[in-house]
């Protein structure tokens, strides 16, 4: 009798434990998302921010981030009359005191230009305008004549940017266009805001496809990020990576481009030729800083397959490139991010 009693108690206990375990599992796995999410259009692109903090001020912090993006646009948009960069581009070679953030990014871009032997060049403003890619209106995008391109190239060259303390001067009529790195810089600024508010906060910022991770999803899971198929639609991913931290950015030939006589020309120019390169459809980069991820992709689109691997080793970035035949190439660092 006693034995049967013990078996009964055992079975009932196991049953009770199982019920409790199932209930706990279901409650945890269906935990509602605790993220404050805001979408909007800022910095000339589609922005999405998800933020969770124990301080209960997520909404205020995210709103401050959107305000900051508007401020950054008033500094870095070279074609917006009145912006800090617009003023610099129209300063006729005179010394000008600039906003410290513009100074930082300018210095970074010149150093990056030197490190890539000028394949990356922030002084292509006049070439961008010549092709019409400074506007959002595709009817204004056009293939200039070789003569016009040669002419515009005379006013290009990162060595024409000079610094003196917090003053900058542009020589030889060059126009600065920081389109290759401004979004990445903005990612870094927003990540710093999130962390300054709460070191252990989590979430992400996504500025038109330039993404920075504030912290892992729910504190311990990776964010799964799709790499856009360069020949597909907006929601069509060709590959995935899993990020707990860091930044990821993509440069590509599929949004601002024209096709003339079967040849594709896009908005990233080789400063030596004034034309876009035709090595890659897109380059996606993962690194610690948004500005590096952004700049690396831009430079790699120009530098091509012979330089991308070498640069990736030098800068310590992970990359995935898709060439004009659609062939995917990844470095070994990239492969670490392919598993959750």
């Amino acid at each position: 009798m006693q034995k049967i009693q013990r078996i009964r108690t055992l079975i009932l206990s196991i049953f009770t434990l199982a019920v409790v375990a199932v209930v706990i599992f279901v409650v945890i796995s269906r935990r509602p998302p605790q993220y404050y999410v805001r979408r909007g259009i800022a910095f000339g692109t589609d922005v999405k921010i998800a933020y969770a903090t124990r301080k209960k001020n997520a909404e205020a912090v995210v709103n401050a981030m959107f305000d900051e993006l508007n401020k950054l646009n008033n500094i870095f948009n070279p074609y917006k009359p009145g912006s800090e960069l617009y003023k610099l581009n129209h300063s006729n070679g005179k010394w000008m005191e600039v906003d410290p953030r513009l100074l930082d990014v300018l210095k970074y871009s010149i150093k990056f230009a030197r490190d890539t032997n000028g394949d990356f060049d922030p002084t292509l403003g006049r070439v961008v305008v010549l092709w019409g890619f400074n506007t959002d209106n595709p009817h204004k995008w056009k293939l200039p004549s070789p003569y016009e391109i040669a002419n515009a190239l005379k006013d290009v060259g990162y060595r024409n940017v000079e610094f003196d303390g917090n003053r900058v001067r542009l020589l030889n009529n060059v126009w600065v266009d920081l389109g290759g790195i401004a979004k990445g810089y903005a990612v870094d600024v927003l990540l710093a805001m999130a962390k300054a508010n709460d070191k252990s906060s989590t979430g992400y910022v996504d500025i038109g496809g330039d993404i920075g991770i504030i912290g892992p999803k729910y504190g311990n899971q990776p964010w799964k990020i799709g790499i856009r198929n360069p020949r597909g639609t907006m929601n069509d991913a060709i590959s995935y990576v899993y990020l707990y931290k860091g930044t990821i950015a993509t440069s590509g030939d599929y949004e601002r481009y024209i096709i003339v006589n079967g040849k594709r020309y896009y908005h990233i120019f080789n400063p030596k030729t004034g034309y876009s390169s035709n090595y890659f459809e897109s380059v996606t980069t993962i690194s610690k800083s948004g500005i590096l991820s952004d700049a690396f992709g831009t430079a790699a689109m120009i530098g091509g397959p012979s330089k991308i691997g070498k640069w990736a080793n030098e800068f310590g970035v992970a990359y995935m490139s898709i060439n004009e035949e659609g062939k995917i190439q990844k470095n070994s660092l990239w492969k670490d991010y392919e598993k959750p």
Partner: peptide, 16 residues
């Protein structure tokens, strides 16, 4: 954007 539908296979998309 859609809400309450079946999830996509990713959280975010990186693009140009």
């Amino acid at each position: 954007h859609t809400e309450g539908a079946k999830s996509t296979s990713y959280d975010l998309m990186t693009s140009q």
